[in-house]
Design a binder for these strands. Structure first.
Length: 318
DNA sequence: CAGACGTGGAA
DNA sequence: TTTCCAAGTCT
């Protein structure tokens, strides 16, 4: 959960998952759709699919216990170079280099590494391996990460209270804020699409469907949307809707993803009882449990301004 | 290797 | 408002 995600964002999800699926075996037996719904809002949904696949592998092939050793850990779904090393060092006392974004920053400053990331990663990993002690390697790893998180911060690092300020080459040159060097990032393209929010006469239920397992928002729930194409002029017409209805334009919903910005035209209609399309009806009370990703909550909010979503699992909106 | 892959909070 | 970025992984 913590991959590319802050502790503050993860905390309520972590607590809910631990409460709902307290063991690897229980997670392995979980309903995948419920797991995806519980992950909704955290982002990077491949992590949820990987975590479930990982639990199944650990339960089926490792008697419900995580294998020891970076190499075996690295073979599990969703467990890459960083996570395998972190588990090995922290849980199994293995003296392996644990390199996350914090450690990259600390070490690139300590040695004033001019090579941009990610090209400098192998060098950084070697340096960290060199300093990793055979005694309490897990504590060393967490100390390095916490140093980066609290003192050797991206902006205005607190060099005055840093235990590594004396040997720090970047600090010696007064260039600490210029490390790590990173490759320039490209501009985000704009994409355009349409979303169709159909409401059932009577109970106000909304028509939903599930997105394909892979790709953007893979396996997540949505009101039907068109493909998200390179930005076109003007609105996308109701002829793109999954079924005929009295579609009216309710507005637009915009959302920034990691690698593109999306604007969706949001269409609204009172729909026939049987839309003759893939999907299901979800009543307003059930919308929270459906687990819509954030962009789709925005879409529903544009179509139905009265709908209020809860912010985090099991917590009431303020 | 470079690009895909979410979201919310801070500056 | 815009930009940055956080305990990365997969293809």
């Amino acid at each position: 959960m913590l991959q590319q995600t802050t502790v503050a964002a993860v905390k309520p999800y972590f607590l809910h998952f631990l409460d709902r699926w307290p063991s690897v075996e229980q997670l392995a037996d979980a309903d995948p759709q419920e797991v995806m719904a519980a992950w909704a809002g955290l982002g990077y949904y491949a992590r949820a699919r990987n975590m479930l696949a990982c639990a199944r592998t650990v339960a089926a092939q490792h008697q419900g216990r995580f294998p020891e050793g970076v190499k075996a850990l690295r073979c599990l779904p969703g467990i890459g170079e960083y996570t395998s090393a972190a588990i090995a060092a922290i849980a199994f006392d293995e003296p392996v280099a644990v390199v996350d974004g914090n450690v990259e920053r600390v070490v690139s400053r300590l040695y004033a590494i001019e090579t941009p990331l990610p090209a400098a990663k192998p060098r950084i990993r070697d340096l960290v391996q060199e300093m990793t002690p055979s005694e309490r390697p897990g504590d060393f790893a967490q100390a390095m990460m916490d140093l980066g998180a609290t003192i050797c911060t991206p902006k205005r690092p607190a060099c005055a209270i840093c235990p590594l300020s004396a040997p720090c080459l970047a600090r010696a040159e007064g260039r600490q804020e210029f490390f790590p060097v990173k490759a320039p990032k490209r501009a985000k393209p704009q994409r355009r699409g349409a979303a169709f929010v159909a409401m059932r006469q009577g109970d106000g239920a909304i028509w939903l469907r599930r997105r394909p397992e892979s790709g953007m928002l893979g396996g997540m729930v949505e009101p039907p949307t068109t493909a998200w194409s390179v930005k076109a002029d003007g609105a996308i017409g109701a002829e793109s809707a999954p079924f005929a209805a009295g579609w009216e334009l309710a507005g637009t919903a915009s959302h920034g993803f990691t690698h593109f910005d999306l604007t969706l035209d949001v269409w609204r209609a009172v729909a026939p009882a049987d839309p003759q399309s893939d999907g299901w009806w979800a009543t307003p009370e059930r919308l929270d449990e459906e687990g819509l990703p954030t962009v789709m909550k925005k879409v529903v909010a544009v179509a139905l301004p009265g709908i209020i979503f809860r912010r985090r699992p099991g917590r009431a909106a303020p």
